[in-house]
């Protein structure tokens, strides 16, 4: 019987999990720091949850408030840098993406993560006019997850080629690519009719064709390209200065300058 593979998440899974294994959680601490408290008070109306996780203040917001909250954080709380922005795919579980913005306050040396849940297919407002770093980050998010961003100046694929199909960081996208990805370079360079000639990709890292004289030549047993495999030693000379003699005792003297 063929093994069942869930289609909504094709990433690697643990092959064995103990029945009694309880996953602990990283402690979420209530906000106590004075600076963080002032931040929470500044955006109190728009946040749904706030806590401190490993030194970072995490603010949960609604997706439609993202521009407003980030504007308040930038203009009132001094979070002048958006160091990172991206998404996490929760489509299999909740049919939602989790988006996060990682902000930095340079004067206080504090970091805030603004988190929101965005429904599949919905679009998010661009924060490019607040933080220019969002220009590339939002394009990357669009490229990797297919999340549309409203009012972005140039929303186009950034990392994958323009004619690429699929969004690679979705959980439904396999690590080794789909059918389109596996033939991409052949189709692009030679055309589809050369697929048979060039052949499929070898994705098995342990595959060795010992008698393949087109790809491998055994040193000391070389045959001409494509000729049948032979066990007879060939008389090709390799000069001794080139091949390292491992039986020779190494000299102990080191370079003085080291």
């Amino acid at each position: 019987m063929r093994k069942y593979v869930p289609k909504d998440n094709v990433q690697k899974k643990a092959y064995y999990t103990d029945r009694f294994h309880v996953v602990p959680r990283v402690p979420r601490v209530a906000v106590e720091d004075a600076h963080f408290l002032s931040v929470v008070n500044a955006v109190k109306a728009d946040i749904t949850d706030s806590y401190v996780e490993i030194g970072t203040l995490v603010l949960h917001i609604k997706p439609e408030d993202n521009f407003k909250v980030l504007q308040v954080l930038k203009e009132q709380c001094g979070y002048t840098q958006c160091s990172e922005q991206s998404a996490v795919d929760y489509l299999a579980k909740d049919n939602e993406f989790e988006l996060f913005w990682q902000l930095l306050n340079v004067t206080e040396a504090k970091r805030v993560r603004v988190v929101c849940r965005l429904a599949n297919g919905a679009a998010i407002e661009s924060v490019e006019s607040l933080f220019k770093s969002a220009n590339f980050a939002e394009r990357e998010m669009f490229d990797m997850f297919g999340i549309k961003v409203n009012n972005h100046p140039f929303l186009k694929r950034i990392i994958m080629p323009d004619d690429w199909e699929g969004h690679p960081l979705l959980k439904t996208y396999p690590l080794q690519g789909d059918e389109f990805a596996s033939w991409y370079e052949v189709d692009k360079i030679f055309g589809k009719e050369y697929r048979d000639i060039i052949g499929p990709e070898n994705r098995d890292p342990s595959k060795i064709e010992r008698e393949d004289t087109k790809r491998f030549s055994r040193v000391g047993y070389e045959v001409p390209f494509g000729a049948p495999y032979s066990e007879e030693q060939t008389d090709i000379e390799y000069s001794e200065t080139v091949l390292v003699d491992y039986n020779k005792k190494p000299s102990k003297t080191l370079d003085k300058r080291r």
Partner: peptide, 11 residues
């Protein structure tokens, strides 16, 4: 199997 860290997020 690899280590199983606790649930959570970190930057």
């Amino acid at each position: 199997q690899g280590m199983r860290p606790p649930k959570g997020e970190v930057y």
